[in-house]
Design a protein around this nucleic acid. Sequence first.
DNA 1: AATAATAGTTGATGATGGAAACTATTATTT
DNA 2: AAATAATAGTTTCCATCATCAACTATTATT
Lengths: 148, 148
Amino acid sequence: MNKNITEIYNLIQDLSWYFGNQGFDGECCEDLSLVEYMALKKVCGMKDIIIQEIGTALNITKSGVSKVIDRLEEKNYVLREQSSKDGRVCCVIPTVKGLNAVKKISDRYSEYLLEVLDSVEQDSLVNIRDVMELLYKAIREKGYIRKN
Amino acid sequence: MNKNITEIYNLIQDLSWYFGNQGFDGECCEDLSLVEYMALKKVCGMKDIIIQEIGTALNITKSGVSKVIDRLEEKNYVLREQSSKDGRVCCVIPTVKGLNAVKKISDRYSEYLLEVLDSVEQDSLVNIRDVMELLYKAIREKGYIRKN
DNA sequence: AATAATAGTTGATGATGGAAACTATTATTT
DNA sequence: AAATAATAGTTTCCATCATCAACTATTATT
């Protein structure tokens, strides 16, 4: 096994732990859990996104998404709207509160990262961004790792 | 807000989702959940690690760790051993099964990553590793992001 | 018109982590 | 040395949350 690859894998995994559920004690920010925030981000990032698209993007079942959206709707971050083209389909729309929350949380993380990367040169930042982009694109293309 | 920083943050977060709990449908590999695997990795990586050290490393309470170790012990991945120096302290030791499991899962992930990064040059791999290392070290030094 | 397929919701269930109370052991104080 | 405080870990109770399977409503196909 390529040594670099194994090291990269270990680093991604450890890094991911920081940005996963354990990274902030249960709550992501405000009253949002991580999955709620991730779903809200998808909702804010795509016009008229539907339940199943959120599920595919986040790799959770439609049943799970339905409940996440329940919670987001209860807390007034999103609205449900029946599709005019297909009565079965449920479009999810962000509220102003939802849009603001994503912005605020994103800023807070960015600020954290800014402190973390305080001493890094601007050139290196570009390199870091490029590497992360390469990694993410490649992994997204490949799809989620499968059990078998 | 620095544009690169925000982009890096978003990429890390999305990448982390793939390597977090949603990345593999509940199970990490074999019969291990992600947190169980992460704890097992810590146990395998440090001689006579104690409950609280695992908790600090993974940012979960000692109560939580105790239960994770319960499960790992039930499944024969680790053993508990009272410290000879301090009767209150509980050292956690990996079994052969535990060591093998970490090796196997690590290899499986590495293989996945190898496929993902198939077309990337060796030089770039080194760069990727360096970037991830820089990121991880900086974040680990800074500590987990806090709620407030 | 009848049947199949699809989108989403709901109820039951299981996994899991935290808070606080508890036990056992060690350290400190008087 | 005895009493008290501090510490490590465990356990009980509870809340969160995701999945499976059954269900409803709507649309597509036969």
